[in-house]
Simulated assay, not measured.
Amino acid sequence: MTSPDQPRRNFYGRIRGKTLRASQKTYLNEDLGALQPRDITREDNPDRRPIDPAAIFGDARDVWLEVGFGGGEHLVHMAARNPDVGIIGCEPFINGVAMLLGKIRDAGVTNLSVHPGDARDLMDVLPDASIAKAFLNYPDPWPKKRHHRRRFVTPEHLLPLARVMKPGAEFRVATDIPDYVRQTLEEVPQAGFDLVGQEAEPWEDWLSTRYEQKALREGRTPHYLTFRRR
């Protein structure tokens, strides 16, 4: 668990984009508060006490995690397909959070929790072996070599992820960037995962996202990697 006096981390990436529509502002004002897991931030939990992820959903169901859910289409799709599972989505880009909240209203799913911030802050306070499945779909590629250390598939992110995942838990990575595949195959096993699948076709329950559709339009090939926590 992270020490309460650990220096604050650098965060790279966008927090805000285009001006939000009035409906999106309404979603943020009316819906986000009830969907946020409590005691994630240092302000609410300065001692970084562990939280109970199952308690977020009011029972002892399995809990999944999606890191960087973009516009939220995959997250809502998974929640609708798996109503007996609780899924926490992390996304610091507030425009994406607003898009997700609109999709949650439309779909009527009730098994989602939303952390509108850095996934590392959530992993700081999750107990060991508390997550049964995790998703990393089309993460920011940080294409310049000097920025590769900002990618999610680095020890700074992967070691905390490995700590919070149950033994045997599945970790899925989808990307259209060949060098991201290279780094994923190098770094993820070192963090405590075994590669169990590297495919050109998606998983049976996959929902293509807007980021994947953009990649396909621009002629890039998606890669689907499956790992299992040792």
Rank of each mutant, 00 (worst) to 15 (best):
L161C: 03
P167T: 14
P202G: 04
V196G: 09
D62V: 01
G102R: 05
C90D: 07
T19W: 01
W64G: 03
H147G: 10
D176C: 02
A107Q: 12
E170W: 01
L158F: 05
P167E: 10
A80Q: 10
T175Y: 10
W206H: 12
D140A: 02
F135K: 00
F11Q: 04
A169S: 12
M78T: 11
M123F: 08
L28K: 04
Y224S: 00
L101A: 03
K166T: 08
D176Q: 01
E186P: 00
N10M: 06
Y27A: 01
A134N: 06
I131G: 06
T2D: 08
F135N: 01
R149I: 09
G96R: 13
P4F: 00
P155R: 15
A60Q: 15
T221F: 11
T175A: 09
F171L: 15
N29F: 09
M165T: 11
V196E: 15
A191D: 14
R210F: 12
P155C: 10
A54R: 15
Q190N: 09
L75T: 00
L216G: 02
G168K: 10
H77L: 02
D52C: 03
P202S: 12
F227Y: 14
A80F: 01
W203F: 03
P139K: 01
K144Q: 14
R105C: 02
E30Y: 11
E199M: 09
S3H: 08
T110P: 04
T175W: 12
Y12K: 01
R105H: 06
D140R: 02
G102V: 08
L112R: 11
R81A: 13
R210V: 09
F69S: 02
V109W: 04
R149T: 12
R42E: 08
W206A: 00
M123I: 06
A169V: 04
D179P: 00
N29E: 15
F57P: 06
F227S: 09
R149N: 13
P92M: 09
S23V: 11
Y27G: 00
P141Y: 11
T184V: 06
R210Q: 13
P53L: 08
K166D: 12
S23H: 05
G68R: 11
G102A: 10
V109D: 05
H147C: 11
S208L: 08
G58C: 04
D140Y: 03
V67I: 13
D121F: 06
D194M: 05
